[in-house]
Design a protein around this nucleic acid. Sequence first.
DNA 1: CTTAACTGCGTAGACCATACGCAGAACTAG
DNA 2: CTAGTTCTGCGTATGGTCTACGCAGTTAAG
Lengths: 254, 254
Amino acid sequence: MEPTDDETGPALPPVVAAAWGLRERAPKGPRPGLTLPSIVAAAVALADAEGLAAVSMSRVAKELGAATMALYRYVNAKDELLTLMVDEAYAEPPGPGGTGPHWRAGLARWAWAERAALQRHPWVVRVPISGPPLTPGQLSWLEDGLRCLAGTGLGESEKMSVMLLLTGYVRNDALLTAQIQEASAASGRRMDEIMPEYRQLVARVADPARFPALREVIDAGVLDQEDGPDDEFVFGLDRLLDGVEALIRGRTTA
Amino acid sequence: MEPTDDETGPALPPVVAAAWGLRERAPKGPRPGLTLPSIVAAAVALADAEGLAAVSMSRVAKELGAATMALYRYVNAKDELLTLMVDEAYAEPPGPGGTGPHWRAGLARWAWAERAALQRHPWVVRVPISGPPLTPGQLSWLEDGLRCLAGTGLGESEKMSVMLLLTGYVRNDALLTAQIQEASAASGRRMDEIMPEYRQLVARVADPARFPALREVIDAGVLDQEDGPDDEFVFGLDRLLDGVEALIRGRTTA
DNA sequence: CTTAACTGCGTAGACCATACGCAGAACTAG
DNA sequence: CTAGTTCTGCGTATGGTCTACGCAGTTAAG
């Protein structure tokens, strides 16, 4: 039988219900040997250790000492497992920052916290999103971010747009970092070997007549010095928060 | 024999050499029935029509009337093909915008152009990057972007950081759009059906006591009205360019 | 005790990338 | 003209993926 949608509206997707802990233990049948949380935990541990590519149904099952098909009693398809893994990674939101006029410090703290979470679980940004966020972890993060913007005079729609922009920035940074690290590992070279080599290759391939601006970058030595792991993140975050600040100033002044 | 690295430095990766058209036609052997550009074009057409998941070696070969393994005479591995596909998508850079003090208009034009390119080829952002950009298409885009920042007083390193930030924003927006569209297609619902349903689900699941800020967003009706397809992009781009403008003003004032 | 509902899982089908080696084509050297 | 070289196309095989299906055994209700 289909889940009914009575007057409360459409039914929750099963994976969402599972994430919120709304599962009725069946009265009959043998006691389950596995549990959904243990499956998700095993998959997360595996992804942390060996990357998302190592997370196959058979591999997760092996990690649990079960057979591949046993997992399908708990999860309808692999992407449901992925959704639950992502929500697990977003457990423990940063908490509401200091309230009041400290929106900028609050959002910065929020962004650094998301960045830290994504560094603990770099595979999260490789999971294709399957819809707008509905799971408890992701909604908690959103809640904590929105609270930072409480006293700013921004409209509710603008607050959502700011959060979308901010999380997009953090996630894109994490994606880039993860991909670079993966590529570096695959090629067997470390980053401090790659960058000087990259500068040489670009210099060889980029004809000065056709790429003058790029040539200036090369000649300035920008591609030689490898910047600290946080420098680029700090730069972008500052620009982004400056942009939000300009918006807020415009609102409160007008 | 390995490609030598003489005094010019390390050798170009073969796929990079191919992208720049530096391939010597072998004097012996039968005339090739396929060409690398035709293979790349077929793969791009396939990805445009059916998504990146449809691009398997056997499928591309079938599209060309060849056998699967024939492709491996032109490409060492599938990810080389993907690299060439991405560069093909970045062919035709936007061109240098108006020079002079119009950096903001120039960068905005650049961002819209990249967005348009990524909407023509939504699969591009799904291809994991395999290193810093070395192919002609991507470097041309970078060149055109850097030129917009010529008269701004920014340092070369800052210009690169701005371009990284900007392309990251556009790519993340494209990734989100592509994933949403994919999820919408997979579930068989259109966006104007999904959003109201989403609002109901969030409202059901987000306890007002635990999610007060989120509740305010819901009550304000933000999740009801579906915004225009460009609204979110415009908002983020404005914030981002405002942030860059603040940086530039600080540089020229100081 | 019967029956229903559930768990675990073995098998099999339909894909995927790609390593390897063979057959034949096109050119060069003699 | 012939032999050798080197390339192209591709058939086969290996080991991996997800998951549909159905069977066997377990638990509890009636």
